[in-house]
Write a protein that binds this DNA or RNA. Structure first.
Lengths: 221, 221
DNA sequence: GCGTGGCACGTACGCTGTACGTGCGTCAAC
DNA sequence: GTTGACGCACGTACAGCGTACGTGCCACGC
């Protein structure tokens, strides 16, 4: 028996196996051993199907939120939870970020994150702003991680860096060794730590009574 | 006379006017008043054309880099330069981030940014890591800004937040007013400032002799 | 027995990217 | 001046796409 979830799962499998370009209604139908038009009894159109794929992948994020842990650790754990499913469904992750889905699938992570940030001592407005920075960083990082590896097997772009003319781009030439190597785990943790520390500073400043705004036009510099 | 750049420009125009989905070889040819197959004398295929579109948009980023300015200000200026063209070509920006292009078009920004970060006092390794965090934030932010506004005119998703069940998501319900309003300028600057301050802290710590790594496993918290 | 509605499916239409062949204009060699 | 080569615009053709529409099967309420 055909069902919406069977169709969505088949789509996710197909995307992971052969990439998002390989997805067509005919292909999915063949995968399920049914006629093409049967799909339309469960899914209004292809676009909605891809939205459902995004929603499905997003809902697989596991939130083992530990209220006992310090808020900084909870921030880290939540970010890593996202990253984990992005690694598990790398090609589907591209479709997740490329379609803006306005469903409730992404609300739970938001709820958890905001709760954590309120616990950190931010007020509502700051918490939302922090959340947006946080999301921007995580999405931007994952986009690079999954985008840089189309097949997710070989490391492609390193060669390109090496053949840059050092006369035109001296700094890039000099730092080529560092640009070519990229331990994704380490890079992600580095940025995450930077972000958490920035949050900690903001939270501390807030606790000590300095109010409002980015408040850094006068930052030492 | 047909030329590669005429074709690319027509593609960019079409994308901005009617969205990336409207792009087809036939459509572009019609736009230019030529036959479809004539395009293939200047562009190997559609995928390469879209890569060229991405490259073209990326190359429009204006770097008025002022070596006299403090490095923190240069970081801000460079980020805003990206954001400016993303706003000028919002729909093309989506294709820029969705295709990973390994060309030299993106090298100049990298050169400038790394140069700025070295000036800030980071060594090569740190500079590259900082750059990656920086890119992740900018890309993530712009993705939300341009993705959230498909037509770039009306503000869509706010309504969705309002209809979330406050019983299931109390924090989201409570913070709905803040979630619904989003001054993109202010949000971007907020995150940018957070990032710059985090960089400043790192640079200062480095200058005072604390070496290596994220070094925050023991961060206070 | 008989509508009625849900579901699987075939057919068909307009669209897509692009391989291939054709014809025309210009320029180099003789 | 003739001829060959070459670049480029273009038409045709084909496989594949999303999906509107119609058809037939089957289970169910009356």
């Amino acid at each position: 028996m055909l069902s919406r979830t069977r169709i969505v799962n088949a789509a996710v499998d197909l995307i992971e196996r052969e990439g998002a370009d390989a997805v067509s209604m005919r292909r999915i139908a063949a995968e399920l051993g049914v006629g093409v038009m049967s799909l339309y009894n469960h899914v209004p159109n292809k676009s909605a199907l891809l939205d459902a794929v995004a929603e499905s992948v997003l809902s697989k994020v596991e939130f083992t939120d530990d209220p006992a842990a310090h808020w900084t650790e909870r921030v880290r754990i939540q970010a890593r939870a996202f990253r984990q499913i992005a690694h598990h469904y790398p090609r589907s992750t591209m479709v997740v970020v490329s379609r803006q889905l306005q469903s409730t699938a992404g609300i739970l992570p938001v709820e958890r994150a905001l709760s954590t940030l309120l616990e950190a001592g931010f007020d509502g407005r700051e918490a939302v702003q922090m959340l947006r920075v946080y999301i921007a960083y995580v999405v931007g990082s994952l986009l690079r991680e999954v985008g840089v590896t189309p097949t997710f097997a070989p490391v492609r772009p390193d060669i390109r860096i090496a053949e840059v003319d050092p006369a035109l781009f001296p700094v890039v030439g000099e730092l080529a060794p560092h640009l070519m190597e990229c331990d994704h785990d380490e890079e992600f943790e580095f940025g995450l730590e930077l972000l958490v520390q920035a949050m900690t500073v903001r939270a501390a400043r807030r606790a000590s009574g300095v109010a409002g705004g980015p408040g850094a036009e006068d930052a030492r510099g």
